[in-house]
Design a protein around this nucleic acid. Structure first.
Lengths: 186, 186
DNA sequence: TCACATCATATCGAAGCGATACATCCGCGC
DNA sequence: GCGCGGATGTATCGCTTCGATATGATGTGA
């Protein structure tokens, strides 16, 4: 997850760890902020795997870039390939809150069919949750703790909203695809 | 988090691991389901800490209880104490989605003042998120990726809803407290 | 009777967290 | 021009949780 996000950001511009973390906060709308304890190990993993590489010490001329201690990373060709693969993957784990959010953040780089698969998968997942909550609220009725019931109600409302939101996105995708069956503009 | 949930469930009835996990799914309205890889280590941790204890092999008479391999746990006096402490704790981490959900699931065992602190803390946290999303949507406007903007919009809507939901709960608490200043019934 | 689902415990490696440590750099008050 | 606090920046530690997987007992129904 973090690795997908890092590759996505480095795809746009080289950066160092600290900055990546800030960017991530912006891109993911604050719904997710990875800790340094995740970030730095991830950067090392990616480097070891050859998906990113550390930029050499910068030109001493450009003083702004040469702050001591900074380690600037760039994405490699292999990294771009892997990124494209990951973007298009779609499975149960792709549909959970976290992973879906990250995928959406890089959706404009995702091929149209993969976008569709991911949106529909997410919809199925949210619908399941919605049905689970519905039946939990239906059965039980009074015997369940009132706070739990409130929580279920909030969850049900938000699932319903998200399904509607997904329906709109999906409808949009379809419309766009009708207008431009090849890779849609972005 | 898991430990709080386990203590809470065992407070109500002794149980074995597999069953605890199922119960957790019900109690938390499916919004959270811990894996076995978390559960069994947690049970061992709690046992080592003396907060729960393994029930001795059950009376061979009661066949239903004596299924081989089952390890039934009960909460100890120390565990009950610790549970009460944990319930009333309130800090930034108490206010994140997961932790808040678990706390809410055992809210009827939580003292009124602690309930208030937790609800208000959660409200502050959600309001912060809401403001962050609002300003992200305001600035940028067009330059941000449209999918990201959609995600932000969904997040904003759901924060707004949750704040309203929290306001109602808080108002309820206050009303209840006015009617019965000592420990409210439940 | 035998196959299949469910019940049940358990462990492994990987990923992420929160805290913390430790430097450096920059702007601001003095 | 000096120092100080806050932001910048990298890094690691111990811990929790996850998902996959192994293993076997028990119930159930064709």
């Amino acid at each position: 997850m973090l690795e997908l996000a890092i590759l996505g950001l480095l795809h746009e511009a080289s950066a160092h760890g600290y900055e990546l973390r800030k960017q991530l906060g912006v891109r993911l709308g604050g719904f997710r902020l990875f800790s340094y304890g995740s970030l730095y190990p991830a950067l090392r993993r990616l480097t070891r795997a050859g998906l990113i590489a550390e930029d050499p010490a910068p030109d001493p001329e450009s003083a702004a870039w040469s702050r001591r201690g900074r380690r600037v990373y760039r994405i490699t060709a292999e990294g771009k390939e892997r990124f494209a693969e990951m973007l298009s993957e779609s499975g149960p784990q792709t549909w959970d809150d976290e992973s879906f959010g990250v995928h959406l953040a890089f959706f404009s780089r995702t091929p149209a069919e993969a976008r569709m698969r991911i949106l529909e998968g997410r919809r199925r997942a949210v619908e399941e949750r919605r049905e689970g909550l519905r039946s939990a609220l239906a059965r039980a009725g009074e015997q369940i703790d009132r706070y739990t019931r409130e929580l279920h109600q909030l969850g049900l409302d938000s699932s319903e909203r998200e399904v509607r939101w997904l329906n709109e996105l999906i409808e949009n995708e379809r419309a766009e695809f009708r207008d431009a069956p090849e890779t849609p503009p972005e």
